[in-house]
Design a binder for these strands. Structure first.
Lengths: 210, 210
DNA sequence: CTATAAACTGACCGCCAGGTCAGCGGGCTG
DNA sequence: CAGCCCGCTGACCTGGCGGTCAGTTTATAG
């Protein structure tokens, strides 16, 4: 009895948390971080503002957990690809495809992603949003290791893996910005191919090929 | 007399505008966009808050003109490089060098740059900051033409110039993020070389070279 | 059906931002 | 030197935000 009741409570709790998170994500996507007021989120969730505070400590926690949840799925997928075996070009391709597809199917989340991605400037940054996007850091770090291993294995030419990791992650964003800017985009596969190809071989003319 | 007086007025006007713009840039750099309140900017400029409104309509205009002014110098330089003759690798190199050097010497401005760079999300974006960074658009458009011409001239292999332009501009940002994240950076030249090299030749092993 | 507890509500609070404007004072004119 | 002009000031206003909590509604138990 006690156990069952507790479980039920937890389910309801979880359901409410999820409802609020989803509403927050929708509002941020539509109006940006600044436009995502507690009232707007409450309205979007169809509840009263006060109710949010039964499930989240404050606005900061809500935003943070919204972002964490929204991207944990993508992060898992990406880390899986990084951990899997296979030739580098194929894994790089899958890596890029996963990210572009994710945001292409959830265009609104990209705005949330951008809002949250950059390190709050050095020095005495405002207290707002301290945690600075833990997941993105994990991703870049893991990507760095990925390239380090590729260099060690002789799959790519020797180069600074950390620089490369950031370069690749920004390259994905470049393409996404372009995709989302235009109303009707080319197929995802085209952008993925282009990006993988460009990162692998650069833009210069091939030196000597048949 | 009238003319001279008018000139003097204009000089004073311009001096005030510049003082305020500079103060705004400093504050944004130190505290971020959100932390750049009118009061904070006034304090930094050593004037009263009300005075700002004698020279700028409102906060939006001040921020916009601050950004415009801060980067017009960089934009001029970059457009000059794009318009100049020379072999593509060299021009690409100079292009990257100009941007990285600029922000390396004015690290604080990079924060301002990031704040302002992205298109305000589609749909019914908040009225805040409408103009969406005209200069950056000009830069990317001009860069697109630059690559189109390079393709036409056979200097690089055929590829989508618009995609490439965005890719290059984001690549610069990737390196800048990395530079500014670490306290003591490697020489600018190293990063520039790396980026130009990577964009030109990619990361794959060379096919067949001596 | 009633009593009690839990979940929910939204009017309210304090705070702080952008923006205003009546008045102050330093310098130019006559 | 008097007095006016005008750039400048900063106390003040207004609005909207995050956050609270007394009161209401709803669910559960007996």
């Amino acid at each position: 009895m006690a156990v069952e009741a507790k479980t039920k409570e937890q389910l309801i709790q979880e359901f409410r948390v999820q409802t609020i998170r989803d509403a927050a994500a929708r509002v941020i996507a539509r109006k940006g971080l600044d436009g995502a007021t507690m009232q707007a989120i409450a309205d979007a969730a169809g509840i009263a503002k006060g109710t949010i505070y039964l499930y989240f400590q404050n606005r900061g926690e809500l935003l943070e957990r919204t972002a964490d949840h929204a991207f944990s799925q993508l992060l898992d997928e990406v880390l899986g690809i990084l951990a899997a075996p296979g030739p580098l070009p194929e894994r790089l391709h899958r890596l890029i495809a996963a990210q572009i597809s994710y945001f292409d199917e959830r265009r609104d989340f990209f705005r949330l992603y951008l809002s949250v991605r950059y390190p709050e400037g050095a020095s005495e940054a405002s207290r707002r949003e301290r945690k600075t996007w833990e997941q993105h850091k994990v991703y870049v770090e893991r990507l760095t290791v990925f390239f380090e291993e590729a260099v060690a294995r002789g799959e790519i030419r020797p180069m600074d893996a950390a620089r490369l990791a950031l370069f690749v992650s920004e390259g994905v964003i470049a393409i996404l910005i372009r995709r989302l800017a235009e109303a009707e985009s080319v197929p995802v596969a085209e952008d993925v191919d282009w990006l993988a190809e460009t990162i692998l071989h650069g833009i210069a003319l091939p030196e000597e090929e048949p």
